[in-house]
Design a binder for these strands. Structure first.
Lengths: 219, 219
DNA sequence: CCATAGTGATTCGTATACGATTTCGTACTC
DNA sequence: GAGTACGAAATCGTATACGAATCACTATGG
């Protein structure tokens, strides 16, 4: 059986369009025409349409009735909102996960963080951001509440589509970030109470946001 | 121009099905057959399909590929997850709203709460729950972050579809709830710091959840 | 008597087709 | 010359139709 459990075309279309948005092929403001995408992907318009609506629900595209869809812009306030929301749900997710994080997880996270530290020398924002996501994934993936976890994932997705790397804009933030990661790990290791961990995780993200805002103001 | 700006059939279908779920016509576990709904509403299956997918995204229905959709169950863990998530996002929304809440809003919320207090005599869980939502709406509707506000609305929607009223199950909780509301108002009036308000709002909801869980354990 | 394979019915998934709406360009009038 | 109205092109919205997957029931063999 070459049973590849083929995904539905809606899903394929969803994944394809999403990938193109995230990787930057479709830049913000890009007009997504249903018929065009359909012909391009080799599907009919119906699955494409459904894919677009899903992307709309996630906020990656804006859809206007009888007009069409466009890739969501990097409106700075949009970035702000997303980061703020993520700071809240990620903080909660991390706090809920903390009691379920084992030594192996800690070790893995620490290894990733060391890799990030190395990365500080010949700085590569994209790679750094990727490692950053890996690091945080270890911390929140054990969250026992699937709804919250889903919100965290959506937040990260949205961020990825908004800009490929925040650290490209505020490289100075990277150094502090690594230190805060280590502090966060220590808190979890020592079994700090949930509230402390939540605050730390939330502040960690808020700090990145603030750094960005301070930077943006100077432009 | 009697142009009533007719909504698209997808939207109509969405609203119709959602209404039937919330009002209880379609009970949890009910099988939603696309063709059946379409014939029933007088539409084709395509808009109905899209409506179902939207409802799926909101968590009101579960959808399985090549099988069909069913109304989401009142799985107790599902209720728990939803309440926990709502406690977090609503707490944050309330704290972010607090500085923007004026005296008029406070007065309105207080009036609603008094109505709830009256309602305690000849207790009507449905009415009480409705007032409860009105009360909290005043507190979080000023939230300047639309994403968070959206999450709060989704949470309330989900709760409404899961059970028409939590207070039907734990009537004893209603009395405490009213008192906590007043305490919350005092905090906002006196300009307490965001963290205090957030904690209070979160605990307020957690307490309802705990009351339900304690009750459920005894069944 | 139970397990398993086959068959039919039901329902979903997608393609194609056509009607509805918006948008943009052009021509006409003031 | 500018503004408005008309019309054509482009695109979305929905209906219908058919193929594909799943499930329940039955019959057959162990």
């Amino acid at each position: 059986m070459t049973e590849t459990a083929v995904e539905s075309k809606s899903q394929q279309a969803y994944a394809a369009v999403k990938a193109r948005i995230v990787e930057g092929t479709y830049t913000p403001g890009y007009r997504l025409v249903l018929a065009g995408l359909a012909k391009d992907l080799g599907f009919s318009v119906v699955p494409v349409r459904e894919a677009i609506r899903r992307l709309e629900a996630e906020g990656l595209v804006k859809f206007e009735r009888n007009v069409g869809a466009t890739v969501s812009g990097i409106d700075p306030t949009e970035y702000l909102y997303t980061m703020q929301t993520l700071s809240i749900v990620e903080g909660a997710a991390t706090a809920l996960s903390a009691p379920l994080i084992g030594e192996a997880d800690i070790a893995r996270a620490r290894a990733v963080n060391e890799e990030m530290r190395d990365c500080l020398q010949h700085f590569d924002p994209i790679r750094f951001t990727r490692l950053n996501q890996d690091f945080h994934s270890v911390l929140f993936e054990h969250c026992p509440n699937p709804h919250i976890l889903d919100l965290v994932h959506r937040g990260w997705n949205r961020l990825a589509s908004l800009r490929s790397s925040t650290f490209r804009f505020v490289p100075g933030r990277a150094h502090d970030s690594v230190d805060e990661h280590e502090a966060l790990l220590k808190l979890i290791e020592t079994g700090a109470d949930a509230d402390t961990i939540e605050k730390a995780a939330r502040l960690h993200r808020s700090a990145t946001l603030d750094a960005y805002l301070a930077q943006a103001k100077n432009i």
